[in-house]
Design a protein around this nucleic acid. Structure first.
Lengths: 188, 188
DNA sequence: CTGATTTATTGACTTTCGTCAATGCACCCC
DNA sequence: GGGGTGCATTGACGAAAGTCAATAAATCAG
């Protein structure tokens, strides 16, 4: 779990005592491809660190899957909205490649917040970071063309096309698979 | 400033001592229509509570103003990205109707975080809330048509058309003024 | 290996939004 | 009150994405 502690160090290093308390709340789990970490209607009362594998976040609208996000090894995955509000999830979290995760439940995390102010600060820093990520994604919809969004995405994660099918990338970009195919074809 | 304390009570009530410390950091300011609370290039190292008036948040892209958000009395306004990262703002915050604000600077707020864990928790809750707002707006771009976004916006704030010109609403919705005009015209 | 399924590409056509331009209206300021 | 400016609407046209359908390529299962 050293990866997780390293991840935290980016934000705020925890003392050994704080880390130990946190670590004890983590549950190690393996989930296979095509299984779901969360389904629509369930309350996503957890945050999970992805140690191996990948996942996608999507919603079903009028029979169509709309991809909201991808998650890869080295980041946290959660339906943060459902986590915060305790409302049932609108989203599915589906495992794309066999995954190893470390999961912490909300009730345990809030107990840690009460006990360790520094863990609460970490929670604030992570919430702020998530805010920045979503705000950036919103920006790309507000002033970029699908082509620019595609190039931006590749610049961030150049091996994405090998890892996820193109129709999911199209959905993530907010266009139809045919359109992404044409965007890739026309070089300009 | 009782309004602000009431606003906080939605999230987490502060003790008299905590509130007093917070209140002392607030600076009361009046800003007139067409003035700017923040301009591109400046670091938005503050959060301000809007007690009266309204504002808009916009960015200049290729000579065009793109409206990101509107702010009205009873909410906080800030370039939260610039606030968090200390990077210069890409955005302008322009006063649409003469405003009265209460402003707190970042350095004072982080000092309060160190002193009062409950104020830090408030910071976390507010960051989480901002996350939910941006995530919701992203959703509306991901799976809604301009017409649906317009109706959703009106449902949330029915007196918006009287308060801000239609071309700003169009920009906020991500369409041209002509398109919004046509969306309104066609009843279906 | 082979047939079946899924995914990607391409074409023809439709729909939606953008662009450019003209017009009309309201508001504001002297 | 008249002139000016800014804003909303409308029309004609163009550009871009969606839809539907056919086909090709890749992947998977037995």
């Amino acid at each position: 779990m050293e990866v997780i502690r390293n991840y935290f160090n980016q934000f705020l290093p925890l003392s050994d005592e704080e880390w130990k308390a946190f670590e004890q709340c983590l549950s190690k789990e393996r989930i296979h491809k095509k299984e779901f970490l969360l389904k629509e209607g369930q309350v996503g009362d957890f945050i999970a660190f992805v140690a191996e594998g990948s996942m996608r976040f999507y919603v079903l609208r009028e029979g169509e899957e709309k991809v909201i996000a991808f998650f890869f090894a080295g980041s946290f995955v959660s339906n943060y909205r459902s986590f915060l509000t305790n409302l049932p999830s609108d989203y599915y979290i589906e495992v794309l490649q066999d995954a190893l995760i470390y999961r912490i439940r909300k009730n345990e995390l809030v107990a840690l917040y009460d006990q360790f102010p520094k863990i609460e600060r970490l929670g604030r820093l992570i919430a702020e970071n998530l805010y920045l990520m979503v705000a950036k994604r919103l920006d790309s919809f507000l002033y970029k063309t699908p082509k620019e969004r595609y190039e931006e995405l590749l610049a961030q994660n150049s091996r994405l096309p090998e890892e996820v099918p193109q129709y999911m990338i199209a959905s993530y970009l907010g266009v139809k698979p045919e359109t992404l195919s044409r965007i890739r074809a026309r070089r300009d």
